[in-house]
Design a protein around this nucleic acid. Sequence first.
DNA 1: ACATAATGCGCAAACGTTTGCATAAAACAG
DNA 2: CTGTTTTATGCAAACGTTTGCGCATTATGT
Lengths: 337, 337
Amino acid sequence: MSLKQIASMTGASVSTVSRVLNQTSSSCAKKELQDKIWAAAREIGYQPNKAARALKKGVSDTKKLPRIAILMARVTAEEDPFFSELFRSLEMELLLQGGLIEDMIHAEELGKKKLSEADGVIIMGRCSHTLLEQLLLQNRNIVGIWRNSMDFDIDEVICDGRKAAELAIRHLLSLGHKKIAYIGDCSYESRYVGYCNVLFQNKIPLDYSLIKQTNQTKEETDAVFQELLLARQSKKTDFSAIFCANDHTAVRVLKLLEQQRAKIRRSISVISIDDIADAQNTKPYLTTVHIPHREMAHMAVMLLLDRIAKGHTSSVRIEFPCRLVYRDSCYPYSAPV
Amino acid sequence: MSLKQIASMTGASVSTVSRVLNQTSSSCAKKELQDKIWAAAREIGYQPNKAARALKKGVSDTKKLPRIAILMARVTAEEDPFFSELFRSLEMELLLQGGLIEDMIHAEELGKKKLSEADGVIIMGRCSHTLLEQLLLQNRNIVGIWRNSMDFDIDEVICDGRKAAELAIRHLLSLGHKKIAYIGDCSYESRYVGYCNVLFQNKIPLDYSLIKQTNQTKEETDAVFQELLLARQSKKTDFSAIFCANDHTAVRVLKLLEQQRAKIRRSISVISIDDIADAQNTKPYLTTVHIPHREMAHMAVMLLLDRIAKGHTSSVRIEFPCRLVYRDSCYPYSAPV
DNA sequence: ACATAATGCGCAAACGTTTGCATAAAACAG
DNA sequence: CTGTTTTATGCAAACGTTTGCGCATTATGT
């Protein structure tokens, strides 16, 4: 399938065919011949050879890669493994889809100059409204990922924390648990809301002695865990399951449970949200809610590159579903002996 | 930057350079010459011209276009102009992004054979659950557009009808209207829900004599309009605004209002949803809620082609916001004389 | 009817590669 | 030293386009 073929079909020369099909100028062939050429083109379903065309036109083969800045909170893998897994996914997708990481900026140290040089910005996690407003003035191509907020007019790729929590809690309920403790960072409001929601729907009153807020340091998790244990031993509150707001905490909790097995004398179910890699290094393996961060990153990058290429019109909200991963840390409820 | 340049730098011929750099066979040049060529290549930072290479290698430039089937209800532009505008947008985006419309199938006459040949399917509007289940067995690459349902596990591009309606009704409320009539097709549940919601939130009881269901034929719209007018003249219900579930109905209603201006003796606000092209051909121009069907189509096609290319993993839900378009058919409320 | 301008069309070169074939040089076997 | 294989290299054609140039044909103005 080529110009040559059309040429031989119509008796015209290759150059004429080229000129007609490209409509280089209206005066390059008689109407009659033009029709014949178009007919032939349609007949064989002509599609111009892009390579040849690009070659001839000398189109710069190296279309410059869009430069992406990533704006993120300063979070180490130690503090939040999920966050850094998400970041890796973003990196990978950028590489795969041909984006160039222009810069990685921590929200606090935003030197604005850099951002305006980037073609697009990915915001990971929370950032202040004032910052976002500033950003919007400089650059319309912004996609937010992993920020459960919907206030502003930027593209968002999200996974609903509330729904994830509901999935987890419903699972515990279906196993017969009623007294479910909560250990969570205060930055996971939506997951906490999900926890409360499901309990409320099932007419289980909140027991505030079972609800522990913590930042995610190991020390504080340990302390909070001890509080729970003490409360339990004083027979005031006897929970049979723990819902952790994220895997990072849950992994620590599993370790503590293992260490204190003797004291506890009853298996306690643990469930959480994220499905980080470490969730499969625990004993027992952690049952958790998977957040599809690979797919989310894929979508975020695709969306951003599309915005950069085609221009931004209407902002969009892309929601991914999460899914329960059944592993070994949840047991059917059994009454205490 | 080309082989030729390297050739002239090293004194070798273009063919030799090509062979060396491609390592076609280990025995194609003396060690010394090879080194010289590599050195030169490094010096100018040689990057092979992909176009030329593809051309020569005859790599099928015509990576076959994915074949898309569109599954849609049988709706004519006469019956629902928005639906056909959306369809046009889809057609355009498919063309633009390099999809091939394999077939257009009306849901009722689904000959299954065709669908399995397509690489992907776009479902426009509602379709039965059993049909969807069948479809999922044949083809995972399905994206739904314009179907306000979320039951199944397929990609969805949506615009929330409830929110659109809420936008419209809130606008009327902000203009001071309290008695707002509803004329709508029964297939627009979510818009009806939005209407009820806002009234409820504002403690305005529903007046069922103001709520008229209709299919969208001109005749029935006319009949329903007459009913409303009669009820009004009997002084039982005095509405000052009409919310139509879609522009198609609203356009007709505006015409009827214009015709009967003498009888009505008071301007009645009209608002609806869709923002079809005809909404700007009315007198007065119709105030309505814009549904970004172009952007939705763009996204749907992009998503589908991506699924086809990369495989489908987690289904996703993409929600576009709608936006109120202020035109001339809504007036501030003024008490009747 | 003639000069001039406009149009219609083909030839051939070019874009940067790759590769079959030819040739020259080297290596080897006798 | 001759004949034969192997190795090293260049020539030129091809891939499918686009486009400048030139020639032939037709239309236009006087």
